[in-house]
């Protein structure tokens, strides 16, 4: 069983990005973003629409290759790096099979051979969906599907979890459930990197805020400081709800 805290296993964090850029044709979506993700932190990426939040997240996770700049993990072992991360998307992609089988699929693809079913059951129980074990995942509600997606990510025991607007299409009750799971995962030792456009959510979760504006990392500040005294005029305007894009 992969365990980020396992003895002797090299940790993949911290993650350091320097001068990360990403171009789509002539448009520069990300411009020279440098950041560092420390183990155990809760990092919230915020910013107006089109700021480049999702692109940054995908780049850190390895789904997009940077067109410029460097990404460096604490280890050079590519398998360890790949298996040390998980990601939850805004719209969860459920395979056409039961909730439990969705998690079993992820575990098997992740290399687990023994105790797959028990691990999948435990993961569902952790997100409070033990009773949905045999329900076809696609027939679950949006909130339930997102919780299954979190259970699936959690089952993989990642060192770092990326979440891209995981509650954007959910109602307040479902949102609260998701936030509780994220908090529990963090408490269990997982580093969180999450995008959101919900300032309240950012306040509840973040211990550090990365504020993106037009592809630039404008602020990289401890959360309390960011919400009380933002350093940049853009962040100030954004917090007041005046900065729309």
């Amino acid at each position: 069983m992969a365990d980020p805290a396992g003895a002797g296993a090299p940790a993949i964090l911290p993650l350091a990005g320097s001068d990360l850029s990403w171009r789509a044709g002539d448009v520069e979506i990300l411009r020279e973003v440098s950041l560092r993700i420390e183990p155990g932190t809760r990092n919230i990426v915020i910013g107006p629409n089109g700021a480049g939040k999702s692109v940054l997240l995908r780049m850190l996770h390895g789904l997009l290759a940077p067109s410029g700049g460097q990404l460096a993990w604490a280890t050079a072992d590519p398998l360890r790096i790949r298996r040390g991360q998980a990601m939850v998307f805004q719209r969860p992609v459920m395979l056409r099979r039961t909730a439990r089988e969705n998690i079993e699929f992820a575990l098997r693809v992740g290399g687990m051979r023994e105790g797959v079913r028990a691990a999948a059951r435990a993961a569902l129980a952790r997100v409070g969906l033990a009773s949905l074990e045999d329900r076809p995942a696609r027939l679950c509600s949006g909130g339930e599907q997102q919780r299954i997606a979190l259970a699936r990510a959690w089952a993989l025991r990642p060192e770092i979890l990326f979440l891209d607007e995981p509650t954007a299409s959910l109602d307040p009750a479902a949102t609260r459930a998701i936030e509780e799971i994220i908090a529990a995962m963090h408490a269990a030792g997982t580093t969180i990197v999450m995008t959101t456009h919900d300032l309240g959510q950012a306040r509840r979760i973040a211990d550090r805020v990365l504020f993106l504006h037009r592809g630039r990392l404008v602020e990289d500040t401890p959360a309390r400081e960011f919400f009380q005294q933002p350093r940049s005029p853009e962040a100030t305007a954004f917090i007041k709800g005046e900065l729309l894009w």
């Binding site: 789904l63 969860p92 693809v109």
Partner: peptide, 16 residues
């Protein structure tokens, strides 16, 4: 196009 990111995120191989 719908499944791609999720499956790649799970480190699924082409065959998987």
């Amino acid at each position: 196009s719908e499944y791609r990111e999720q499956l790649l995120s799970l480190n699924a191989t082409r065959w998987q």
